[in-house]
C-alpha cells in the first residue's frame, strides 16, 4: 500500500520485471555439483582405465579416441580417469577446508560478536592479522614450512595433502569468521534476542536458538564462494609446483600439462574447464543463497 506512496524511482530505471521461475542455471549448477560429488565418491568403482597407469601405445592421443574418451597426456595417462580421480582430491580438500575452517571460524566469530568486550577486540585483531596476508601467500608460506619432514626432504604425499588441507583451513577461518561475527553483531541486538535474555535464557541457548539459525544462511552463502576460492588456491599452488604431487588433483594435472601445451592442449583445457565449472557452480549457489537471503531480509 505505502509502496505506491513512496515511489522514488523515475524513468531513469526503466523496465523492471519480476522474474519468478527458478533460473536455468540452478539446475545446470546442481547437475554439475551432483556429478562431481558422485565421481568423487564412486569414481574408482567405475569401469575405465587406471588413472596412474601409463599407456605407452597411446601417448598424447586427442579426446574422443576409442579407448580414451578424453584422450591421454603426452606421458600416456588417461585424461578421463585422471579427472575422475582428481575430482576426489580437489573436492575432498576443498570440502574439508571449508567445513572445518568454517566451523571453527563460525564458533570464534559468533562468540566474539556475542560476548563483545576484550575477547572481541583480540579476535577482530587476529582476523585482521590473518587477512592481512593474501591467502595464496599464506598457504604458500605454511606449506613451504610444514611440508618437509626434515631440513631438505619433502614429506610423504599423505602428509603433504594433510598440510595442504591444514593451510587451506587456516586461510578459511578468518574469512568465514568475520562474516559470522558481522552477522551475529547484526542479529544479537534485535528485540527477540533481548526479550529472550530478559526471560533468563542462557547464552548458549540464545546462540543456538536465535543467533545461529539467522547467521547460518550468510555463512552458507560465503561458504559456497569459499569452496570456489579454495579450489582455485589449490590449483594455484599446484601450478606453483607445491600442491599435491604426482598429478593427483585437477590443479596438478594442469600444472603437469603446462609444458605440453603446444602438443596436447587438452591436458590444460580439460582440468582448467573442470575447475572453472566447479567454481562457477559453487559461486552460483553462493549467489543464489545470498539473493534469497537479501529478499528475506528486505521482507523483515
Amino acid at each position: 500500500m505505502s509502496s505506491t506512496e513512496q515511489i522514488a524511482t523515475t524513468d531513469i530505471a526503466p523496465v523492471q520485471k519480476a522474474r519468478k521461475k527458478r533460473p536455468f542455471g540452478f539446475y545446470l549448477a546442481g547437475f554439475w555439483v551432483a556429478l562431481i560429488l558422485f565421481l568423487a565418491v564412486f569414481g574408482d568403482f567405475l569401469p575405465g582405465p587406471q588413472w596412474d597407469e601409463s599407456f605407452y601405445d597411446s601417448l598424447g592421443v586427442a579426446p574422443f579416441h576409442q579407448s580414451h574418451i578424453l584422450g591421454t597426456t603426452l606421458d600416456g595417462y588417461d585424461m578421463y580417469s585422471g579427472l575422475v580421480h582428481g575430482a576426489r582430491l580437489s573436492v575432498f580438500v576443498a570440502l574439508v577446508a571449508v567445513i572445518v575452517g568454517g566451523a571453527i571460524g563460525t564458533v570464534i566469530g559468533v562468540a566474539s560478536a556475542y560476548f563483545r568486550g576484550k575477547i572481541d577486540v583480540v579476535i577482530t585483531m587476529a582476523f585482521n592479522i590473518m587477512l592481512s596476508i593474501p591467502n595464496l601467500v599464506l598457504s604458500l608460506a605454511l606449506i613451504s614450512v610444514l611440508a618437509y619432514s626434515d631440513e631438505n626432504n619433502p614429506a610423504s604425499t599423505t602428509r603433504r595433502v594433510g598440510v595442504l588441507m591444514l593451510s587451506l583451513t587456516i586461510v578459511i577461518i578468518p574469512i568465514l569468521g568475520r562474516i559470522a561475527r558481522g552477522a551475529t553483531l547484526q542479529w544479537s541486538s534485535r528485540e527477540f534476542v533481548l526479550a529472550s535474555k530478559s526471560m533468563g535464557t542462557t547464552n548458549f541457548t540464545i546462540i543456538r536458538k536465535h543467533i545461529l539459525p539467522n547467521v547460518a544462511p550468510a555463512i552458507l552463502a560465503i561458504g559456497f564462494l569459499a569452496i570456489g576460492s579454495v579450489i582455485i588456491v589449490e590449483g594455484s599452488l599446484a601450478v606453483l609446483g607445491i600442491g599435491v604431487p604426482g598429478g593427483g588433483s585437477w590443479g596438478s594435472m594442469l600444472a603437469n600439462g603446462r609444458g605440453n601445451i603446444a602438443f596436447s592442449p587438452w591436458e590444460v583445457y580439460l582440468p582448467a574447464g573442470a575447475i572453472a565449472l566447479t567454481v562457477i557452480s559453487c559461486n552460483w549457489f553462493g549467489d543464489y543463497v545470498r539473493k534469497a537471503l537479501d529478499q528475506r531480509e528486505s521482507k523483515i
Partner: peptide, 21 residues
Amino acid sequence: ESGSGKTVLSRATMGLLPGTA
C-alpha cells in the same frame, strides 16, 4: 491518506514514474 494515490497522481502527471507503471 498515504496510499490514496495522490503522490502517484502528481508524479504521473509530470511523467516521473518508474518502468513498472
